[in-house]
Computed example of a mutant assay.
Amino acid sequence: MTTPASRTILCIGSVLWDVIGRAASHMRQGSDVPGRITRLPGGVALNIAMTLAQFDMRPVLLSAVGRDAEGDELVTACAARGLVTDHLYRSEDLPTDVYMAVEGANGLIAAIADAHSLEAAGARILAPLRDGTLGSGAAPYDGIIALDGNLTTTLLEDIAKDPAFSKADLRIAPASPGKAERLRSFLLKGRGMLYVNLEEAGLLCHQSFDDSATAAQALVKLGAVRALVTNGGQMASDASPAGLIRQMPPEVLVTRVTGAGDTFMAAHMAAERRGADRQEALSSALQVAADYVSGETPL
Rank of each mutant, 00 (worst) to 15 (best):
L151N: 01
V254D: 10
S283P: 00
F186S: 09
A276C: 05
E181L: 02
T255W: 09
A164I: 01
I109W: 03
R36T: 15
V102C: 12
V65S: 03
C205A: 15
I159A: 11
V252F: 08
M269R: 09
D56A: 15
G82I: 02
L151S: 00
L228S: 12
H116L: 15
R246S: 13
A45M: 00
M265W: 04
A271W: 12
Q217G: 09
D86K: 03
V65C: 05
M27K: 05
S294Y: 06
G192N: 10
S136P: 03
L222C: 03
E272S: 15
R36K: 05
L299K: 01
L299D: 13
D169M: 04
L155M: 08
K161Y: 05
A105F: 13
G190W: 12
T133F: 05
G132W: 03
S283W: 02
H206F: 04
G178Q: 13
A105K: 14
T51A: 07
H116W: 03
V252L: 10
G132P: 00
A113S: 14
C78Y: 07
F165T: 11
N231W: 01
A121Q: 01
S6P: 11
V288K: 11
T38F: 00
P41S: 02
A146T: 07
A260F: 07
A239F: 01
M27C: 15
F209D: 06
P128W: 10
G132D: 07
L61M: 15
M193Y: 12
I172G: 08
T96K: 09
R274F: 07
L129A: 04
L151M: 06
L83W: 11
Q217Y: 03
A138I: 08
L147A: 10
R124M: 09
K221F: 02
A180N: 05
V254S: 14
V254C: 13
G13M: 13
S176G: 11
A267G: 07
Q234W: 00
A201E: 12
G275I: 05
A127R: 03
D56I: 00
V252S: 12
S166E: 13
E296N: 15
M57P: 01
A236P: 08
S294G: 15
A180D: 08
S284N: 15
F165P: 10
M50V: 10
C78V: 05
E157A: 14
E73H: 05
C78I: 02
F55C: 02
A127F: 05
G223Q: 03
L282N: 14
R36P: 02
L52F: 07
L108M: 14
L222P: 04
G43L: 09
S6I: 01
C11N: 07
E280N: 07
A79R: 15
I159K: 01
G261D: 07
E200K: 07
L228Q: 11
D56L: 03
D142L: 10
M57H: 09
G132C: 01
V33I: 15
V225R: 14
Q207C: 09
I12W: 01
R22K: 14
R90Y: 05
F264Y: 13
Q279S: 04
G143W: 12
Y292C: 07
I9Q: 11
D18L: 03
E119P: 00
D211F: 00
C11G: 06
Q287C: 14
I109V: 15
A121C: 12
L74V: 00
T255I: 00
A239W: 13
L187D: 11
A173C: 12
T76R: 14
L83I: 13
D18K: 06
